[in-house]
């Protein structure tokens, strides 16, 4: 999922960086004191998740955790994921410094989209709707990331559909795993710290 240096053309890199900067600034504006530790914890989780590697399918894929990040952080996912990606690029040589912007958008934008899609439902009582939306939140965020990677590669690879199909198929196991993980995380948090799900995005709905 991390796009390496030297793969993308300059316009894609610049566009990615611009969207990333916009997202990060929205995120930073909404970050208040209470949110900072939460951002840091999820940033660390994201940082480590890429090391958990699922040896299924044709390619080498790893956990992303952007669904859970999105539902707990909203727009704050942008700064959170950006910090983790920067450290991964420097310490692990995952991705690259020039592709940092594109990679941030690839993983953080689906997080924000899933936040808006599912934030209402995951706060419901533990009914079918909660289970379904928690699972889809984890799975859909990975799926959207795959689509964004394919979109970023349009300029270099031959056809969008072929690449998209290839990436989505490679990440199918990850989607299922992330869906289940997101579901259990949210179940746990709901039982132990329900206010985590209430207080998101720098605005308290109460």
């Amino acid at each position: 999922m991390h796009i390496s240096e030297g793969v993308l053309s300059a316009p894609v890199l610049v566009a990615g960086a611009a969207v990333a900067v916009a997202g990060i600034s929205v995120g930073l504006r909404r970050m208040d004191t209470d949110n900072i530790p939460k951002v840091a914890v999820l940033s660390s989780a994201f940082f480590v998740a890429s090391l958990i590697h699922v040896p299924l399918g044709p390619a080498s894929v790893h956990l992303i955790l952007n669904g859970i990040s999105g539902i707990l952080l909203g727009w704050l996912s942008f700064p959170s994921i950006f910090i983790a990606l920067t450290l991964q690029a420097i310490l692990f040589q995952f991705g690259g410094i020039t592709t940092l912007g594109v990679n941030t958008v690839v993983m953080a934008l689906p997080a924000v989209i899933c936040f808006y899609l599912f934030r209402v439902y995951v706060r419901r009582d533990n009914g079918f709707l909660f289970y379904a939306s928690a699972f889809s939140c984890g799975a859909l965020s990975v799926f959207l990331s795959c689509i964004l990677v394919a979109a970023a590669l349009i300029s270099t690879e031959k056809s969008f559909m072929t690449v998209a199909k290839l990436i989505v198929v490679a990440h199918l196991p990850i989607m299922v795993i992330e869906g289940i993980m997101t579901l259990f995380c949210l179940l746990f948090l709901k039982k132990v710290r329900p206010e985590l799900l209430e207080y998101v995005n720098g605005t308290n709905p109460q």
Binding site: V41, V48, L51
Partner: peptide
Amino acid sequence: YIFPLILALFSVVAVNSSALAHR
């Protein structure tokens, strides 16, 4: 919640010390 989460992170590191990566 921070403490259990940190513990979870560290156990992940311990399990994956023969770390598998994506590069």
